[in-house]
Design a protein around this nucleic acid. Structure first.
Lengths: 80, 80
DNA sequence: GACTCTATTTATAATTA
DNA sequence: TTAATTATAAATAGAGT
């Protein structure tokens, strides 16, 4: 989906990896949102960066997203 | 990405919705897997169908996927 | 419902501003 | 560096099995 075919393995270059992370993370959340709407299903996506930053998507408040503290040593998605 | 542009709203036709769910769910999990590998991050995706079936992807065993029972009234993704 | 096919849309890698 | 641009790879809608 770009100028070149990309092999699916860890991107070693730091800035390339960061750029790809930003783009593809956005794409993943978009896809999750579309799927939840098109098919009327509940979806949660959680992504942890290597530095412990958390990115999440939830299609519904039927998921409780719990963030106990900023260190995020434990993170829960609870389906209620 | 298909023969026609699709508006992002609930697909009313049952079998079309089911077909799309199957295809796009597979696509979403694939994208999650690629992102986790390319960018070396941890990802969990949980999808609940309207009938309560659960589909999940986890890039790592740092996520504990807890299934208390088959009824799945409560489901947890725990980041450890 | 789950495959195959393929026209077409969409995502995105590399580049440029 | 952050934001567009654009050429190309990839996903997928619809049809047929």
């Amino acid at each position: 989906m770009g100028r070149k075919k990309v092999e699916i393995k860890r991107i070693e270059d730091r800035s390339s990896r960061q750029a790809t992370f930003s783009k593809r993370r956005s794409g993943l959340m978009k896809k999750a949102n579309q799927l939840s709407i098109l098919c009327d299903v509940d979806i949660a996506v959680v992504v942890f960066s290597s530095r412990g930053r958390l990115f999440e998507f939830s299609s519904t408040n039927r998921f409780l997203l719990l963030f106990p503290n900023k260190e995020i040593t434990l993170f829960c998605v609870v389906f209620i």
